[in-house]
Nucleic acid binder design. Structure first.
Lengths: 186, 186
DNA sequence: GGCCGATACGTACAAGCGTACGCAATATAT
DNA sequence: ATATATTGCGTACGCTTGTACGTATCGGCC
């Protein structure tokens, strides 16, 4: 009776745990979906005790909101960067192609997160706002090189090409992506 | 002690209950999402006792699969009909515009169901098969009037325009939809 | 160097879940 | 008309969930 079966785990000094938890949440969402995302699952992914979740977040909703905000920001940042690096329209077109073929289609993780966000946004006003801010930012980035109407339509095309490829058995190749975008912008 | 508080509900003769349950499931999915879809919620929506769910379906997964299959079939049927009614390319273009502006964007219910299906398909092979069969059928319908490459790209554009409008604060007007499609097919 | 607020950790609890199952009633076959 | 299979109905059970909360421990300010 001297050694209790489960000794208390040693306390860790862990600043930035909140941040890690948000990242862990994104991992869990991508792997199990929003439906399978629970306090316990996130805590397990981040290797922290359950109680840590309720300490850092008021509710599971709050975790989701922070996680999706982070995801949207990250993707939007890449979008911004690629398009601001382009110095003329031709380069901008290439940037868009790279964006779709490499950045978006390259990461199943991000792809799934985006789809999950869209569905969650249908029922959660806070997440809808995140989505709309993201869309506005993308359009704005496109408007550096294209007129407003083209930017909007192009944004929709990007969305469609991405989603479509993500779900398909034979996703479009980079050349096919290039073809579609050139055809639209021809 | 002669009158039990809750008398047994009178038994109903209800052939086709299984069908009604599948429809109820679609209603619940659209309103609460796959995550919020439970045996009890579906039973409540269809006004049947909980036990009826386990009698008619082996599992909740089975309910979801049947429901999404029905949804995909219904949307694909409209797609087929509009495109087979078109007798030349111009009419086909008009059919596509109507499809997007009226049929797809007209029903928030169907819109949400489609998004839910996509997300669910990412983690459920049976639902992925449903999605892919649906996509193949859409493409085939488009190929009545357009070459294979155009059909595929157009299908993606349709997807993007729909999803984009669904999420936007100011969805595209029918005229804007028309403009985008004409621009691509010009 | 000692306090104390911030953080870490474990656990308890009520609610809701999927599913199983027993019994009742009726449609249908004989 | 009787028997039988099908369908309807209620409820119980074990499990997971979100959340609350008591206690332990430490970093950083005086």
């Amino acid at each position: 009776m001297s050694t209790p079966a489960i000794p208390r785990r040693q306390r860790r000094h862990d600043p930035g745990r909140r941040d890690r938890l948000i990242d862990a949440a994104l991992t869990v969402i991508a792997e199990r979906g929003v439906a399978g995302t629970t306090h316990r699952e996130i805590a397990r992914a981040a290797d922290v005790p359950l109680g840590s979740m309720t300490y850092h977040f008021a509710s599971l909703e709050e975790v989701l909101a922070e996680a999706f905000t982070r995801h949207a920001d990250a993707v939007a940042r890449v979008f911004d960067e690629r398009l601001s690096a382009a110095r003329d329209r031709d380069e901008a077109v290439e940037a868009v192609i790279t964006l779709v073929a490499d950045d978006l289609l390259g990461s199943r993780h991000d792809l799934v997160l985006t789809a999950e966000l869209y569905v969650a946004a249908a029922r959660n006003p806070a997440l809808l706002a995140v989505t709309q801010a993201w869309m506005a930012r993308s359009r704005q980035a496109l408007e550096r090189h294209f007129d407003a109407t083209t930017a909007r339509e192009l944004d929709a095309l990007i969305e469609g090409l991405t989603l479509h490829s993500a779900l398909s058995t034979d996703p479009m190749t980079p050349e096919q992506i290039r073809h579609a975008i050139h055809r639209y912008l021809r």
